[in-house]
Nucleic acid binder design. Structure first.
Length: 728
DNA sequence: CGAAAGGCTCTTTTT
DNA sequence: GAGCCTTTCG
């Protein structure tokens, strides 16, 4: 195996520096991924290090999967012994194995953000605060900040300097108790508890230190203090720690990622070898120059000399459109134009935006024009109600102390268990000092009527409903030890009547499809022995991110947030919403550090592109209902004129508005294709959506807009583009 | 108890 | 424009 043939001298240096700490500062497109995979391969193949003794941390599960498959090609089955994953996934694994040594039940569940907020609301009420007055999200962020600095509720309370912090401190304490009682961990806890484990049980730490001869961390600029603490601890014995990052691509400070980790690394490991990867293999000279001039405007930054031997390439297009609808239309027709010229295929395009809400106008345009696309995270799959309901059932099956899940599904589908019943149940449980689950179990064992333990006066019907529910959960629990995951899934559906419940509700068909999709996911865990299958499934679905679902090989444009785009590359990149207030976002106004982060975000977007960049903005944009005139992004001012075409730099604005109103009006209809006369009730066929029935038709401009009911979904389409075939 | 209707509040990024 | 909460009515 020739590991080095494709590497330049700096990359080679980075791969070969296997002894002692290494800091690799890797500019965009500098072959970073290649370097870190080669490093691992080099360690194993050339240096004879056992894969079992290597830990590689990535930012997303997708990155981990990609690295794994690359390494599989180089190393084959050996990769299975590597520790490869995100901090959260790796910590979860460690805690399942070792947690009981610090009193953690290995059946713990992981709370995602929604679960967290719901628990936080209850905690707020329990300490006598009004969730409306104290935004749970803000509190949650405050708690996360505390945890990211490894501060316990007590520590945090001692240090609170403001009224808000004091409130956070009070809620934090209660919230943490509630988590413990529910035998649940939030995302931050996965990291914090692992550090606590290592602090409290030196022999456990010693075991891991002994094991991990080499540690490698990607996207180091986006790690927080706890994460740094973790690698410092585990790597303390051998000090073979390799961190890779780029300060200019640090875009997660709001998640308490701390750039100072890079400085700390140099301080804590003064012997560290520093390698700079400055040659860019991805982009054209023009793109790199646009990106560099943008990022140079940041004050808090070490200058870098990025260069490329790639071609000069095309100018960057700066475009103004009238509204966000027109913006979307421009993007779609430009994609189709370039595809039509044969220069690119649809999968070569990415459309990036600051906020998820911006994807809607884009989606509508793609649908109207019948152009295929892939959306990364719409209403995110795992955040959907039906999915969360199902998952709550499984969480409760694994861990009946999970109060958040219990409260979520105790009356879903409706079982006649209302608010009053629940508060009575909760009070009763509290007075006995037991969990709600235990209270319910106790209730099911009592004969009817009151007893001396303060048994609440549920009427017969309510009592029946509660007992029915707890028996259901008990059945799931006992079956979960015998059935494979798919059979368990079907049992849950059948016994809860969830299918009927969903199908009778709004968007029933679509939501049932989602449940079936979750069942397919469950199928991936079918072959694991019963209890592990459930545990692995839950861990999988809780720690997945949406980029993880971006499957390769589909020839369609990608719609993605700028944050999610980190680490990806595309021949053509559109960044839409280049307006002050969106990019940079409002929230960064008046906060210079955040403003610099917004600029880095834009930089990340531009540097994803290989060949062509479009910076698009709308003159008017509607934000939450009302439309208003927008101001071009201040970042556009940082881009030199000679690198730009499209005339959209903002000095020339007046002209452009007038021009833009007309210039994208003329579309090139798919005229050679059969564009049938359609009327209501006609049966039609569409390549992507299948068979449907025309609901209504409406003439617009020089085209006809038809509304078609496809199997389960209703779409608005333009006749000239949608390539509808009339069925006979 | 639950469904339906009406009023409210917000606007970011996610492991 | 939507999701969340409260109110109202059956």
């Amino acid at each position: 195996m020739d590991i080095f043939s494709e590497l330049n001298p700096a990359q080679r240096e980075a791969v070969e520096a296997i002894s002692g700490p290494v800091l690799i500062i890797a500019g965009p497109g500098s072959g970073k991924t290649g370097v870190i995979t080669h490093r691992v391969a080099y360690l194993i193949k050339v240096c004879g290090v056992s894969p079992h003794r290597i830990m590689a941390v990535t930012f997303t599960n997708k990155a981990a999967r990609e690295m794994k498959s690359r390494l599989e090609q180089l190393l084959g089955a050996l990769v299975r012994d590597l520790t490869l994953g995100t901090f959260h996934a790796i910590c979860a694994r460690i805690l399942r194995l070792e947690g009981k040594k610090v009193g953690l039940d290995p059946h713990f569940v992981i709370y995602d953000e929604e679960d967290q907020i719901s628990l936080l609301k209850r905690s707020l009420q329990e300490v006598g605060l009004d969730p409306k007055q104290y935004a749970p999200r803000a509190i949650s962020s405050g708690i996360s900040a505390a945890k990211s600095r490894l501060l316990s509720p007590k520590d945090f309370q001692k240090r609170s300097h403001s009224y808000f912090e004091e409130v956070v401190g009070r809620v934090y304490e209660r919230y943490q108790q509630a988590l413990t009682q529910s035998n649940a961990l939030d995302f931050d806890d996965l990291l914090v508890k692992t550090v606590e484990l290592f602090r409290g049980k030196p022999e456990v730490l010693a075991k891991y230190q002994q094991r991990y001869l080499h540690i490698q961390v990607d996207e180091f600029q986006d790690t927080n203090l706890v994460q740094y603490e973790l690698i410092k601890k585990i790597g303390d014995k051998y000090r073979n720690i390799c961190v890779v990052g780029d300060p200019d691509q640090s875009i997660y400070s709001w998640r308490f990622a701390d750039l100072r980790n890079i400085l700390s690394f140099e301080k804590d490991y003064p012997e560290a070898k520093v390698v700079l990867l400055e040659q860019n293999y991805r982009s054209t000279k023009t793109i790199l120059e646009v990106a560099s001039s943008l990022i140079s405007a940041n004050q808090q930054r070490k200058p870098k000399d990025l260069w490329t031997s790639n071609k000069t390439g095309e100018l960057t297009n700066v475009i103004e459109t009238y509204t966000e609808q027109e913006e979307a239309q421009f993007v779609v027709s430009e994609i189709e134009r370039l595809v039509g010229e044969g220069a690119f295929k649809r999968g070569d395009f990415a459309v990036m935006y600051r906020t998820n809400a911006q994807s809607r106008a884009l989606e509508e345009a793609f649908i109207r024009y019948g152009v295929p696309y892939r959306l990364v995270a719409g209403t995110r799959f795992y955040a959907r109600r039906e999915i969360k309901d199902m998952i709550a059932c499984f969480k409760l099956t694994q861990n009946p102390y999970d109060t958040v899940s219990l409260l979520r599904i105790i009356n879903v589908p409706g079982r006649g268990i209302g608010e009053r019943t629940l508060s009575e149940l909760s009070n009763w449980a509290k007075s006995l000092g037991i969990s709600q689950y235990e209270a319910l179990k106790h209730l099911s064992q009592l004969e009817g009527g009151n007893d001396e333990r303060g048994y609440p006066s549920f009427n017969q019907r309510t009592r029946g409903a509660l007992v029915g529910f707890i028996n259901l959960i008990e059945e799931f629990r006992s079956q979960s030890r015998k059935l494979n995951l798919v059979d368990l899934f079907d049992l849950v559906i059948k016994k809860t009547g969830y299918k009927e419940y969903i199908l009778n509700g709004l968007d029933g068909e679509e939501r049932w499809e989602n449940v079936l999709e979750l069942r397919t996911v469950a199928g991936e865990y079918r072959d694991l022995p019963p209890p592990q299958g459930l545990a692995a499934f839950l861990e999988g679905v809780t720690l997945v991110s949406d980029v993880d679902g971006l499957e390769e090989g589909v020839d369609a444009a990608v719609l993605i947030t700028l944050h999610q785009a980190k680490g990806l590359e595309f021949p053509v990149v559109f960044i839409v919403g280049m307006e002050d207030g969106l990019l940079p976002h409002f929230k960064s106004f008046g906060a210079p550090e955040q403003m610099e982060e917004e600029r880095r975000l834009c930089y990340v977007g531009i540097t994803r592109a290989k060949k062509l960049v479009y910076l698009v903005r709308a003159f008017r944009r509607s934000l939450i209902g009302s439309s208003s005139v927008s101001i071009p992004s201040r970042f556009l001012k940082d881009i030199p004129h000679h690198l730009v075409s499209g005339g959209g730099l903002w000095e020339e604005k007046e002209n452009l508005v007038a021009q833009s109103l007309y210039s994208w009006g003329e579309r090139t209809p798919a005229s050679s294709f059969n564009t049938p006369e359609l009327k209501d009730g006609d049966h039609v066929h569409h390549v992507q959506f299948g068979d449907g029935v025309v609901v209504s038709t409406k003439p617009v401009k020089d085209d006809v807009e038809v509304v078609v009911a496809f199997n389960g979904a209703v779409k608005k389409l333009l006749v000239s583009y949608a390539k509808l075939e009339k069925a006979v």
